[in-house]
């Protein structure tokens, strides 16, 4: 299999995994999930580092360093902000003290 075709195979398989992984999500989690996925695509940082390390003139270097800054913001900021959103799930659900709170009397 040529390397181009191998890459395309990986792409197609990843599409199916991506569809499958988030098929059922409660609306409470839509925002954190979007934010988490947003942080994951910050991995473009890897690409930015690769091109920066191959740059041999000022224009290329400037653009790729700018890309590193932006990608770092995307990745690190994304994970931090997602974690803050998810702090709510840290709060332990108190066992409702056997009264009828939240029910219709």
């Amino acid at each position: 299999m040529s390397s181009g075709l191998a890459l395309i195979s990986i792409f197609v398989l990843a599409v199916f995994v991506g569809f499958e992984v988030v098929s059922k999500v409660s609306s409470t989690l839509h925002t954190p999930l979007m934010s988490g996925a947003n942080a994951i695509h910050g991995v473009i940082l890897v690409g930015a580092i690769i091109v920066a390390s191959h740059s041999d003139n000022t224009l290329q270097l400037t653009l790729s360093l700018l890309a590193i800054v932006l990608a770092t913001i995307n990745m690190v900021g994304g994970f931090v902000v997602t974690d803050r959103m998810l702090e709510m799930f840290k709060v332990k659900k108190k066992p409702a003290s056997s009264d009828t709170s939240g029910e219709v009397k």
């Binding site: 390397s3 890459l7 990986i10 792409f11 990843a14 599409v15 199916f16 995994v17 991506g18 569809f19 992984v21 988030v22 098929s23 999500v25 839509h30 999930l33 979007m34 996925a37 947003n38 994951i40 695509h41 991995v43 473009i44 890897v46 690409g47 690769i50």
Partner: peptide, 19 residues
């Protein structure tokens, strides 16, 4: 030719579309 970027990007693309 960075496999990881393909996987990560595609995952976000696909799950993002569903979301």
């Amino acid at each position: 030719e960075a496999t990881l970027l393909i996987v990560a990007g595609t995952l976000v693309g696909a799950s993002g579309t569903i979301l």
